[in-house]
Nucleic acid binder design. Structure first.
Lengths: 238, 238
DNA sequence: TTGCAATTCAAACAAACGTTTGAATAAGTT
DNA sequence: AACTTATTCAAACGTTTGTTTGAATTGCAA
């Protein structure tokens, strides 16, 4: 059992980046913090990756393959005529399980997934399309064959909402107890997946045409900024 | 002293902050970019607000009151025994409408809402609790009276998924056409709200107890997630 | 006008940023 | 051994960051 760092610098940089980018976002992480956590030299980022941006991309790509592969594996193992519940499960479970995997460094990655959708577009958009889009559309097609009564637009909305509920769960997986005021505590991945399935599946089974329900207007303008005197300013420091 | 045709510096700073923070996040926005867009001097941020952080907080607080007020107004106007659909509508509509309001600067705010949950915790967490929590729990309680068959934990999960679906929609409201490959284009707010309601309401009406469906580490996952009668919620039972 | 306070402005500050450099070290090959 | 390659390291690069300063400028009352 070697007590010294068994992982090489490149891997430690990826691990630290995964954790920090997930926690604080791309711009808020400095390479000095990152290399300090990775126990590496500052220049190691430039050496192993060209950029901070390329390090970010590699962090994402390292885990994306496994997640997508697991999702597609479950999707195909659901058979030719799967239930809606099995499809949702195949979409949600790999992410929740990976996010709960505390032994390895994976746990941060799923929050990073959700965050990617909000990072600066020129950095994240191509990456999102590379990593998310194909699997998302595979699932969209699978849902389409299982829910033929739903018109394509409404079905797309169902999957869109499923993705939102899943991402929201992934990103706050560690805070659920706090947020729920103790209502849910220390959920096992199986239980979390089951709750998301129970929440989203009935929507896929409900084929009622969408009826826009316009609400009465009359929305008062929001209150103006309060005319507060200038905030504290330190004048005359000499 | 009212009726000033041009907005004052403080308001222009808030407007620019709303737009930029929503688009790029707190850390990725520099005060030089922000003041340039606001057509203000760099030091104006220090004068009118103390900090960049305090400017961010004021940006959020300026809109939060209007959004929360409108949500509560719809909640109460739904009556004493509202339908699940009316409750979801009351939660979703004000945000979607505000996000679609292009005339004023509000449109960015709702993306900012979603982003807030991911910003650096020491900045955003107290703010989120101040702005989100009370209304969230008002709705949670309202749902509880309408869905007494759902145990509190499962009901919390339903509302949690609803919030996730809503936030995901708000943050990508402008990109829905691109993301859906043209499946949905230029949705009016009414239609978007209706789709979210149609997607989420059936989950609130479905009272089947959640059955954790552990997935075998190997393949074989056919009808795993089909709800089984008599299954129980097992919290901490393993 | 004068006086006073509120606001704006150009300039500068120290600190932190991503990136680069070139020498030092480690690892491997002949 | 010597030579070659890969990797690490401390130091510095030039920018950009948030913040502060003190002098101008404005607006309004006396």
């Amino acid at each position: 059992m070697p007590a010294q760092p068994v992982t090489d610098t490149r891997t430690r940089l990826l691990d630290a980046g995964e954790e920090l980018f997930a926690a604080k976002g791309f711009a808020a992480v400095s390479l000095r913090d990152l290399t300090a956590r990775a126990d590496a030299n500052l220049a190691a980022v430039s050496y192993h990756f060209h950029d901070k941006a390329e390090l970010f991309r590699e962090v994402v790509r390292r885990r994306a393959g496994g997640l997508n592969g697991e999702r597609l594996r479950l999707l195909e193992s659901a058979g030719a005529a799967p239930t809606v519940e099995a499809l949702i499960d195949a979409f949600v479970r790999p992410a929740v399980v990976m996010a709960s995997d505390c032994d390895r460094g994976k746990s941060g990655f799923c929050r990073l997934l959700g965050r990617m959708l909000l990072e600066e577009p020129e950095l994240a958009s191509p990456l999102v399309r590379e990593v998310f889009k194909p699997v998302f559309e595979r699932f969209l097609h699978a849902f389409q064959t299982v829910c033929p009564e739903l018109d394509p637009a409404s079905l797309w909305w169902r999957v869109h909402c499923l993705a939102g509920a899943t991402l929201h769960t992934l990103m706050h997986q560690k805070d659920l107890a706090v947020w729920s005021g103790g209502l849910v505590t220390g959920e096992k991945p199986d239980a979390m997946v089951a709750e998301i399935v129970a929440s989203q599946a009935p929507g896929f089974r409900s084929f009622q045409p969408v009826s826009p329900t316009p609400q009465p207007p009359s929305v008062r303008a929001d209150r103006a900024a309060r005319p507060r005197p200038g905030a504290r300013i330190t004048k005359g420091s000499r």
